[in-house]
Design a protein around this nucleic acid. Sequence first.
DNA 1: AGGTCGGCCTGGCAGC
DNA 2: TGCTGCCAGGCCGACC
Length: 306
Amino acid sequence: MPELPEVETIVRQLAPVVEGRRIERVEIDDPRWSRPLAPAELQDALRGRRIERLDRRGKYLLWHLEGDIHLAQHLRMTGSVLADPEPEPAHARVRMELGPRGKGGRGDEGVRLVICDPRRFGTGELLLGSEALESFLAARLGLEPFDEGFTTEHLRAALRGRRAPIKAMLLDQRRIAGVGNIYADEALFRARIHPLRPAGALTREQAERLREGIVSSLQAGIDARGASIDDFRHIDGVRGSFQDRFLVHLRAGEPCPRCGTTIRKIVAAGRGTYVCESCQPRPRRRALRRPGAPPGGRPPRRRAAR
DNA sequence: AGGTCGGCCTGGCAGC
DNA sequence: TGCTGCCAGGCCGACC
């Protein structure tokens, strides 16, 4: 599933291919993709516009078009963007014909883009003006892990007082942008923090290790050009290689690369989560003692069975 | 109001 | 072998 490193990989490959070209034709097959706009409305808004810049924020792929028009594309679980695919790939949802690059370019023939998405979770949202774009992003995304402002202190402030498991916090895009299930597991392993540890209970030292774990696992993902577990592909259809370098993710039953303990799969924040419970010790169960209650006496609270 | 959970969707696979 | 049904999960909205 495309997370920050996968979207970054797409941007690095796609930007040089599309920037400066004009969108000549758009065909949106799936009305869910363009919601709330009808496909025809979005097609009309995009057609004829020059692509000035392509970049990324969190897991969003951002198309900046002439006339201060922006398309915020999200690949969700299974989306990919292919350039001049041959033959026509399965599960094509959106097709885009881009014109040649204007002057002088001999033999420049234009590009055909196909957005594929087997599970149809992906979306493309039209934003009129950079103010609309910025408020759209601000409502959804926290700090970028590669921003200078992403310091240990910033991370601690974001986690302070939170009782939700740290893994849930990492997956919350409004706190940190771009981390998904894969990189959350990898970052927590690197930081030697158990995914179920309450976010607000991290020590300063742990927060520092977590910051490093987030940045280094995302960087490793970018260096490997993303992870292709199932559907993620480069724009030429090639797979990323980070899935071969996971330290714990998807490695249940295998030995921990650090200590050899068998990696376990648990559920945290409702997601399949991979952990070495020797390197990442389980949080101690707090004796939830209220003031005045008999010390250590009460039976454990029943948890909702699910 | 912070936190949890179900719905969206379909390919793949376990189990019979 | 072939069918059924369950699971995966990013994000959003409903709910407690």
